[in-house]
Simulated assay, not measured.
Amino acid sequence: MSTTLADGVRDAAGRATDTILRLSHDLHAHPEIAWEEVRSCARVAGDLADAGFAIEENYAGLPTAFAARRGSGPLHLAVCAEYDALPGLGHACGHNVIAAISTGAALALAPYVDDLGITLSVLGTPAEEGGGGKIEMLDRGGFGGVHAAAMVHPGPVDVARAEPYAVSHSHIRYDGKAAHAAAYPDRGVNAADAFTVAQVAIGLLRQQLPHGVRVHGIMTSGGEAPNAIPQRTEGRWYVRAGSLAELDGLEQRVNRCFEAGAWATGCELTITPESKPYAEFRNDDALLDLYVRRAEERGRRFSTGADSLMNRASTDMGNVSQRIAAIHPYIGIDSLPAVNHQPEFAAAAVTAAADRAVVDGAAALALTLLDAATDTGTRRRLIDPEGGPS
């Protein structure tokens, strides 16, 4: 690989520093939840448009998705930018950092796409937090022609290998019948009781679940007044397992707990998927090795201890990895004792340590894709995974 090209990418990454740090802080200050990321989508796409990327809005028919492209080479590399926030918690998973890293990597590689013989895409991917935006994009052809996709996710510490759970997301609703809770309780059908029965059943089921399975959720609506039998209750529940195959059977067992609540109380039960299930992740080990080397050159150190468990969090990038080569390493923002999905982590996502993660992550990711494009074996494998004539 040309040292001159690597030095050029490093220099371009350095020149992009102010742009991507402003982007990270601006997204953080204006959080938008899944499928509502209108401003965030436009903000990320705008920085790329200013750098000469061709922008396709409403990408794959999704209003808060975009594709930004440079080059027309035979090897098509994509970086994914997430920018949705969590309801009530803002950027407590640090997606502002993700978007800034992916943008920075693209800005660093952009001057060299012709030299490298690549098509470079930044895919703005909405609704990772439970909405399955990447799955919708996959199903609509949004990753068509892409040979490899990559992104870097913040966590408390650096972790190289993504090992997320497969997960299903369900909306639960019980419909009963309202009545005066003191005068006519016998004329009511208590939807809150149905949820209580279901949660007790799930709690008992956990003893019989395989190690590592996760079942958790919240009630989002539990009644209107204490003197009225609740007519309707609603909630959101996740079931996580090691693979989609394992998840399928486990989800049926959990759903029977919700059915028990309906049978016990006489309520009607409606279970509605909130998205298609997220798959387990398939790491491209060769690409991941390239990233680790480039990150360590930046002084990053990878953890395998108890604080490194963010790599088990579910992601719709898992579905992407089942179809094309992909990596999803984690970069630390020195947030401990705060961890992802805590308000304190949201605060940590715009600290000096988070800014350093943005800069390091962008450079390391850009150099990883540079290495993939210039290594003959890796390039050939990505373009033709089946090993046909090059």
Rank of each mutant, 00 (worst) to 15 (best):
M1W: 13
T3W: 12
L5K: 11
D7Y: 10
D7N: 13
G8W: 15
R10D: 13
A13H: 14
G14P: 11
D18Y: 06
L21A: 14
L23A: 11
E32S: 07
A34Q: 15
W35I: 08
E37P: 05
V38L: 08
C41D: 07
D47I: 12
G52P: 07
E57F: 08
E57I: 02
A60K: 05
L62D: 05
A65Q: 04
A65Y: 04
A68Q: 00
S72I: 00
H76R: 01
A81L: 01
L86I: 10
P87E: 06
G88Q: 05
H91T: 06
A92R: 00
G94A: 08
I98S: 04
A105S: 11
A108W: 15
A108F: 14
L109T: 05
A110W: 07
P111L: 03
D114H: 08
L116T: 03
L116Q: 01
V122G: 02
P126I: 03
A127G: 13
G130H: 08
I135V: 13
E136Q: 08
M137K: 01
M137C: 02
L138V: 08
G141I: 12
G142E: 06
G144R: 09
P154K: 08
P156E: 12
V157H: 07
E163I: 10
A166N: 01
V167G: 00
V167H: 00
I172T: 04
Y174W: 12
K177E: 13
A179N: 03
A179K: 03
H180S: 04
H180R: 04
A183I: 11
A183Q: 10
N190F: 03
A191V: 06
A191H: 10
A201M: 01
A201Q: 01
I202H: 04
G203H: 00
G203E: 01
R214F: 06
H216K: 07
I218L: 13
I218Q: 12
T220W: 09
S221R: 06
G222V: 02
P226Q: 01
N227F: 07
W237M: 10
S243H: 07
A245G: 05
E246M: 14
L250A: 12
Q252H: 14
R253E: 14
V254N: 04
R256G: 07
C257T: 04
E259L: 13
A260N: 06
W263M: 04
E268A: 15
T270I: 11
E274D: 00
P277V: 03
E280W: 04
N283W: 10
N283P: 03
L290V: 03
Y291F: 15
E297Q: 15
R298V: 12
R298D: 13
R298L: 15
N311F: 02
R312Q: 10
R312W: 11
Q322L: 14
R323V: 07
I331Q: 14
G332V: 01
I333P: 00
L336Q: 06
V339N: 10
E344Q: 11
F345S: 02
R356F: 14
V359L: 15
D360A: 15
D360C: 15
A363N: 12
A364F: 15
L369I: 06
T376G: 09
T378G: 09
R381H: 07
R381L: 05
L382H: 00
G388L: 12
G388M: 10
S390D: 05
S390C: 01
